[in-house]
Design a protein around this nucleic acid. Structure first.
Length: 510
RNA sequence: GGCGCGUUCGUAUAUCGGCUAGUACUCAAGAUUUUCAUUCUUGCAAGACGGGUUCGACUCCCGUACGCGCUACCA
């Protein structure tokens, strides 16, 4: 990371969602990259709410987004709910600010007022193919350019609704110097006179609010999704119109997250249809009542989600995959971000989840396992849970799967797996098990490490087949031919429980 | 349609003109294990296509194809 940061300028980045629903997993990645970048450069991470479209506001979305980041471990330095010296951070609370800058553009002749109604525009588009409100058409429309000053004022005072449009000079090449994509040049002639402000709700559109806020909040780097690349030239033009080109932030447009198979970007609707969540947390839609699953509720570890997401579009340049947040902060580099869209391959995420379970201590995993045990009605001492976890955690991809792998440690089998019985409970099984019970009854030290050699010796002396004896015995304890090392199980169960299980199986199966 | 961005194994990617294009996930096979797993080993599998530039191109340039994004008084 060399010339993408200016030493004289403090690094300040923002994540600025619009509260129209749950936070999309692609948005999480965008926020993550902003976060990594900010932390690496000792900069600030801002949380701004872009609620300039009152019609699409969804109650609860803001809290949902905030809670998502708390769960994921991405923290902000300032913004909505965090405070800071550049507020307010909710765009709906910055109306007067925008109005001031809109007027500035109007006075400078860089913008104009347009009275065309949405219906009129729609009709125009239906009438003229590829109609665009720009230099070639603006003089045929109802706006302050075609109307006299008096007519314009009369319309406004008369209560006519209007919008303010950005006047774009055609024929000039606009350069966007992107940190990921390099130099992107677009001719201004293909840009339309974008609506910057609407009188209907006295709110700006994204484009205006975005530039004004980023400028006022002294944002140094705009790291956002590729879907914004086409409008980046417009943003550059706006910075120029305001005379802010010298402090214009640097841009970095991230590649999109694509569906695992098929075409198109990963969308909110893909949700559970594809078998995995697209939201960090479960979302209950307040209007439709529809429930969309979330990674947290589906038992994914936040670190695993973060790690997986970080590598979808970026890599440290070596083969390292499992990284802590701090390592990612140290290694992150916008120049190492890929340019092409990344398919969302959740198989790899499952693998990451496994890796993260393995990397946690048995105590940590045990703590996460406790709620599952409680749900199953098991109230075991914590140290026993820790031991159980140590025995089976390498077998699972999810915390809840621990139960299927160690339930027999806490609950004696009530039935015996048919396949296991067929394979191991035959011929002399009952006989040897009964004999083994007698042998075990005589043992005083039941710890696995002392018991194992003794049992093996006993087996050898009697000329038994080790596999047959041990597996038959296993079935009586576990209920199936599965589970960890048998002496780890007897150790865990203890003498009393071990013998009780074996004898009960004997009475049922014999 | 227009404009922009992109294109290495099925997936995520490494390679910043030069050994048999590496790694991880997935999948398959084998080994290990008293069970089931784990683990280990091995294998499968890629530079969209066509032109250039060059002693030499996955890497640079042009074109084509394909994919994606944008094209709202949504962000």
């Amino acid at each position: 990371m060399t010339d993408c940061v200016n030493k004289e300028r403090r690094v300040r980045v923002r994540f600025a969602p619009s509260p129209t629903g749950p936070l999309h997993i692609g948005g999480v990645r965008t926020a993550l990259y902003n976060y990594l970048f900010a932390r690496q450069h000792g900069g600030d991470m801002i949380f701004r709410i872009e609620d300039t479209d009152s019609g699409r506001f969804v109650p609860g979305a803001e809290d949902y987004i905030l809670e998502s980041f708390r769960w994921l471990g991405i923290d902000f330095d300032e913004g909505v709910s965090f405070g800071g010296n550049y507020g307010p951070y909710r765009q709906s609370e910055r109306k007067e600010i925008y109005r001031k800058y809109v007027d500035q553009l109007l006075e400078a002749g860089r913008a104009y007022i347009a009275f065309d109604t949405p219906q009129e525009l729609e009709a125009k588009r239906a009438e003229i193919p590829n109609f665009q409100y720009d230099a070639s058409t603006r003089l045929q429309m109802r706006n302050s350019l075609t109307l006299s000053k008096e007519e314009t004022d009369a319309l406004i005072t008369g209560g006519s609704q209007y919008v303010v449009r950005f006047l774009i000079e055609p024929g000039q090449d606009v350069v966007v110097d992107d940190l990921i994509r390099g130099r992107v040049v677009v001719n201004s002639s293909i840009l339309d006179d974008k609506v910057l402000y609407k009188s209907a709700d006295n709110l700006p559109t994204y484009h205006l609010a975005n530039i004004v806020d980023d400028h006022l909040m002294e944002v140094s780097h705009v790291i956002r999704g590729e879907e914004w690349l086409p409008s980046a030239p417009l943003h550059v033009l706006l910075y120029q119109a305001f005379g802010w080109q010298d402090t214009m932030p640097r841009f970095a447009h991230l590649p999109l997250l694509l569906k695992p198979e098929g075409n198109g970007k990963l969308s909110k609707r893909d949700g559970d249809r594809l078998g995995f969540p697209v939201f960090p947390l479960e979302w209950h839609d307040p209007k439709s009542g529809e429930i969309s699953s979330g990674y947290r509720e589906k038992d994914y570890l936040p670190d695993a989600v973060i790690n997986f997401l970080a590598l979808l579009g970026w890599n440290p340049g070596n083969d390292q995959e499992v990284m802590t947040m701090q390592q990612m902060i140290d290694l992150f580099n916008l120049e190492k971000c890929s340019k092409s869209g990344a398919r969302f391959n959740y198989q790899k995420l499952v693998w990451f989840n496994h890796e993260y379970i393995m990397s946690k201590s048995d105590e940590e995993v045990a703590r996460l396992f406790l709620p599952v045990l409680a749900e199953k009605g098991v109230d075991a001492p914590f140290d026993k849970v820790v031991t159980a976890v140590s025995l089976v955690k390498n077998r699972v991809n999810f915390i809840h799967e621990l139960w299927d792998n160690c339930s027999f440690l806490f609950k004696a089998p009530t039935e015996y797996d048919e396949k296991s019985l067929k394979k191991w409970w035959k011929e002399q099984a009952a006989e040897t098990t009964a004999a083994l019970c007698d042998f075990l009854e005589a043992q005083e030290d039941f710890s696995g490490e002392t018991l194992e050699p003794k049992v093996m010796e006993w087996i050898a002396q009697n000329g038994y087949a080790t596999g047959k004896v041990m597996n038959a015995f296993r079935v009586t304890l576990v209920g199936a031919a599965m589970g960890p090392q048998i002496f780890a199980i007897t150790d865990f169960l203890g003498k009393e429980e071990t013998l009780a299980r074996a004898r009960r199986a004997l009475s049922i199966l014999a």
